[in-house]
């Protein structure tokens, strides 16, 4: 296997359940038991209603490309062979927006509001990075 040269995400004490979920190929988001809202990244209280009563909950992994950019310039040696690559703001069906990559489609065919679904990229032993691909019609 080729050496993985891109940055390895470093979980924080608050985000560890998120990364553990991804490792099991589940996308987890904080969900409020009081108001039912989702949010991301994790905080101590619900960002919608400030309730402390919340839990990690599996979400659909479906959403849309809210916006995207295409990197042509290399900012990190791990991406020398990747450019041009797309980084997108994904809006999940449940509401939260998150950064990710859109894979499986040439960058020039990307468009805002394109429906996408999650793919789990097991990049190195023990680490899974969430990426998105166009939803099959």
């Amino acid at each position: 296997m080729l050496e993985y040269k891109k940055p390895i995400p470093v979980p924080s004490d608050e985000s560890k359940p998120y990364w553990d979920g991804l490792h099991e190929h589940k996308l987890l988001m904080p969900k409020c038991s009081a108001c039912g809202g989702h949010w991301f990244p994790p905080t101590q209280y619900c960002t919608h209603c400030r309730s402390k009563d919340w839990a990690w909950s599996q979400v659909s992994g479906k959403g849309k490309v809210f916006s995207f950019v295409v990197y042509h310039r290399v900012y990190h040696p791990g991406f020398v062979d990747e450019v041009p690559y797309a980084v997108a703001v994904i809006e999940l069906e449940e509401g939260p927006r998150m950064l990710s990559n859109v894979v499986g489609v040439p960058a020039e065919q990307l468009v805002c509001d394109m429906p996408v679904e999650i793919v789990f990229d097991d990049v190195v032993e023990g680490v899974t990075v969430p990426k998105f691909k166009p939803t099959a019609l």
């Binding site: 985000s15 995207f68 950019v69 900012y75 990190h76």
Partner: peptide, 23 residues
Amino acid sequence: PREHGPEFGHFGAVSHHAFGATR
């Protein structure tokens, strides 16, 4: 940041602002 960005090749100011331009 060490998560939710660099693993996707997202680095800093240019793309933060370029997202808005795309939209």
